[in-house]
Amino acid sequence: MGAAIYFSNVSFGYSDKDVLSEATFAVNPSEKVSIIGANGVGKSTTLKLAAGLLRPRGGSVQVLGMSPDTREVKGHIGYLPEDATPYLLLSVQENIEYSAVLRGVKEVSEATEEMLELFDLTHYRLAKAQSLSRGNLQRLSLAIMFVHKPDVLIMDEPLNYLDLSMQETLVKIIKKSNSTVFLSTHVVSTAARLTDKVMLLSNGRVIWKGELSEVESQLQKGETIEAKLAKMLR
């Protein structure tokens, strides 16, 4: 079986700078991988490429064996941008329902109710999104992302703004799920809680991929894992 997400010699840049340079890596089905790197190194860009929001200048991106641009694949992808903001003038329920309709969910009402309960938003179902706290906005964004039960989850800092209880809920959902997870974070504990492997991105390429335990085994006395990873990224 092929990779769930496969980048083959992918190059991408914005008008004023190159971000990815012939990056090649794979995320296998059901694998859970965090991408870690310095600010501006292209983590969010990598996620957007995987979600089909950007098109590479060179090389190719495949999700489940197809281009992420295609409608067929979109139905299998769940994407959460950093600081995700839903439609502020729609209610919580409407936001989830609209997302379900967009992604061809058959039982829209049932799926919406399930998400409201899962993310503890039932009480806010009629509230306009603009009236929610940032933490509740993040919950709503997660509900929007999960409503069609995607096979591939692409998330940018998913634990941001969540309270401890909701963080635990999300960790349990992800650990239990069979979906492929590809997320970006600066927080090593987030990577450790949500994923099995980390991928280090530097100078437009993936420079290392492995388990955090491998990094931990190389720590010198008094050295933190964050310091070690920072050293590896230099």
Binding site: D69, T70, R71, L80, P86, Y87, L88, N95, Y98, L102
Partner: peptide
């Protein structure tokens, strides 16, 4: 007011 990550990213 559009949300690309919700709507425009749902299809080609």
């Amino acid at each position: 007011h559009e949300r690309v990550w919700i709507s425009l990213a749902s299809t080609s």
